[in-house]
Amino acid sequence: MFVTNAFAQDSTAAQQGGGEAVHTTTEAGHGGAEVFPPFDPTHFPSQLLWLAITFGLFYLFLKRAALPRIGNILEVRRDRIAQDLDQAARMKDEADAAVAAYEQELAEARRKANTIGQDARDKAKAAAEAERRKVEDKLNGDLAAAEERIASIKRTAMKDVDQIASDTASAIIQQLLGTRVDGKDVAAAVKSSAR
């Protein structure tokens, strides 16, 4: 209602200045204060000009300074995050590789330890065997020597027995026959009888 009122008298009241009941207290310097202010064309040029100036400067400022800066901040952050993620992935790979290497080394060490143990066991066994054989050999040697000595003693003893027998026999013959008998004959006789 108000709007149409204002429009209706737009043409006339604009020049006269102050005809409406509501706006009896017209502000000084205002030609068209009776017109509904947003539709008052007297200030259109002013508003357009100042809008152009302020909005134009604002646009230029945003385009040149503010928006590139914010865009740059966001881009730097995005790059940084991507870089950090890459680095994290790379580090994880490295850690995985290290774990794998460690596992492998551990298995190898275990295997090596096994072989070392086995070797030591084998060596010890061989050494013990060698020792045993040496001792056995020595014992065998001693036994053989002892046997040899026994045999030689027996042989000499046997030889002495012959001597004693022939001596005894010759002594007996001398006693019995009163003659001396050749030792060689006695010995041969003893030998043949001993057989």
């Binding site: 007297t42 200030h43 040029p45 002013s46 508003q47 000009l49 100042w50 809008l51 302020t54 909005f55 400067l57 604002f58 400022f61 945003l62 300074a65 503010a66 800066r69 914010i70």
Partner: peptide, 23 residues
Amino acid sequence: NFSFTNSSAFMVITVVLSAGFLY
């Protein structure tokens, strides 16, 4: 009429506030 009005002043305030804040 290109007068600097209260509307113009608030356009300036709007722009200065926004630009200042963003910057």
